[in-house]
Amino acid sequence: MNTNLRNIAIENSDTIVQMWLEKIDSLKGEEFRFSTSDELFENTNREFVNVIFTSIKQQGSLIEVITFSEKLITLGWPLSYITDGLQLFRRVTIDYILSNSDQVDTNFFSAVLTSVDKWVEPIIHQLINEYTGSWEHILSIQRIALQELSAPLIPVTDGITIMPLIGTIDTERAKQIMENLLDGVIKHNSEVVLIDITGVPVVDTMVAHHIIQAAEAVRLIGSNCILVGIRPEIAQTIVNLGIDLTNLPTKSSLKKGFITALEMTNRKVINLKPMEDGIEEMINSIQGE
């Protein structure tokens, strides 16, 4: 019976495909429409249904299914498109076989349901497994990349490094900041680290606590921290929250923090402009002679 039903579906695949294509458009919601062209949506739908029929013809071969799932990942299409599309194919195929058969007894109806389920279920499972596996892999790679970029330690001169922080700081990221900070201080032999929070939108008690902890950890390994990028609104928030930054030097800008860091390492910025003017006058005098 299963073989006969498979042959019926394959022999009438053009009709079933057309029925499926007419109904699949309803799955394309408004958000999906804005991000996907009609041509791409139609072409992908045709490829989708061909993948289904290829699997049915080859009696369970899922090579094309895996390739198709990778394409959907690349396109960024939602998992619901896969599951809804396959469920729709199940309904269309069952309706077509039943409506074009002279048999109406419960045994035949049960056989049709069982057969179509055997065709569709392995495809659903494989597509979902491939989709979620690939997606988790991509997310893992992106998470690692973001962690590497989330708290970089940049050496600017001997003994002085800068850690620019951008975005929200949560507990997980604070841990990453601490690890990068300590590793970087030792790696670059830093005497002073400037933690720049200019790009941090909100500094609350938790964020301040993490920064103070990081600065204290740096102090314990023989270096110093300066917190820079203290905007007026952040200064007001820190005061209102009663956060104690007595032991952590702060500056309003990176420039001021860098000048302080130079002083802490027994260096200073010298303005060479007057010297340049004097040299120019000397050259003019010589030329005049």
Rank of each mutant, 00 (worst) to 15 (best):
G29Y: 09
K57F: 05
E30R: 09
V104A: 08
F32A: 10
W77S: 09
G29A: 11
T106I: 08
F68H: 14
M19L: 15
E64D: 14
G60E: 07
L98M: 12
D95H: 03
W77V: 14
E42P: 02
K57W: 00
G85T: 06
S35D: 12
Y81R: 10
L27I: 10
I56C: 06
R91A: 01
F34G: 11
D38R: 01
G85A: 01
E70A: 12
E39K: 15
L62C: 04
S55L: 04
V104D: 09
M19I: 15
N107M: 06
I52L: 10
P78F: 04
T54L: 09
L72K: 12
E70F: 06
T93R: 00
S55K: 02
D102S: 13
S80Q: 12
W20L: 03
N50Y: 09
S26G: 02
I56D: 05
T93I: 12
S110Y: 07
S80Y: 09
G29L: 11
F32E: 08
T83D: 04
K23N: 11
K71P: 07
I82T: 07
V104L: 08
L62Y: 07
L98G: 00
K71A: 01
G85V: 01
Y81W: 11
L40H: 14
F89V: 13
P78T: 01
T106K: 09
T93L: 13
N107I: 03
I66S: 10
T83H: 05
T67Y: 10
T74R: 13
I94Q: 09
Q87Y: 15
I63T: 13
S55M: 10
R91N: 04
I56R: 00
F89A: 12
R46F: 14
E42T: 12
F108T: 06
F109R: 12
V92R: 08
P78H: 01
L72S: 00
I63D: 12
D25K: 15
L79Q: 10
N45C: 15
G60C: 09
F108Q: 03
I97H: 04
A111S: 11
Q58M: 13
R90Q: 08
T36F: 15
L40Q: 14
L62T: 05
D95L: 03
R33V: 08
E47R: 12
N50I: 04
V49I: 15
G29H: 13
G76R: 00
